[in-house]
Amino acid sequence: MTTHLALLRGINVSGHNMIKMEVLKSALEAVGFQNVQTYIQSGNVFVDTEKENAAAVGFKIKQEIFKAFGHEVPVVVIGKTDLEACFKNNPFLKEANLDIKKLYVAFISTTLRSDSLNDLKMSQVKPDEASIDSSRIYIKYDVGAGKTRFDQKYIEKKLSVTATIRNWNTVTQLLKMYEER
Rank of each mutant, 00 (worst) to 15 (best):
F66I: 14
W168K: 09
L93I: 13
L24E: 14
N17D: 01
T111I: 12
H16M: 10
K88E: 09
A163K: 03
A130M: 00
D128G: 00
A68R: 09
L103R: 08
Q34P: 09
L103C: 01
N90E: 09
K20E: 15
Y39V: 12
A54H: 14
T164V: 06
A68C: 11
A68T: 13
W168Q: 04
L159F: 05
L83M: 09
N53V: 05
S109K: 07
Q173I: 06
E156N: 09
Y39E: 08
T49S: 11
A163W: 02
E72N: 14
G32D: 03
E129N: 07
T49E: 13
G15L: 00
N169T: 14
L5H: 04
N44W: 13
I137H: 03
K153T: 15
F66S: 13
V76G: 09
E64D: 11
G32N: 05
S42Q: 04
Y154W: 07
F59N: 03
M21Y: 06
V31P: 07
S14T: 15
K62F: 08
L5E: 10
T148P: 08
I100H: 11
Q41R: 10
Q173A: 07
K25A: 12
G58Y: 11
K88A: 04
K51W: 14
M122S: 04
T2D: 10
Q34Y: 11
S123W: 15
C86L: 04
G70W: 13
M21A: 02
I78Q: 00
N90T: 14
I78T: 00
F150K: 02
F150N: 01
N167P: 05
S131A: 12
T38L: 08
F33D: 00
T148E: 06
S160D: 09
N167W: 00
G79C: 15
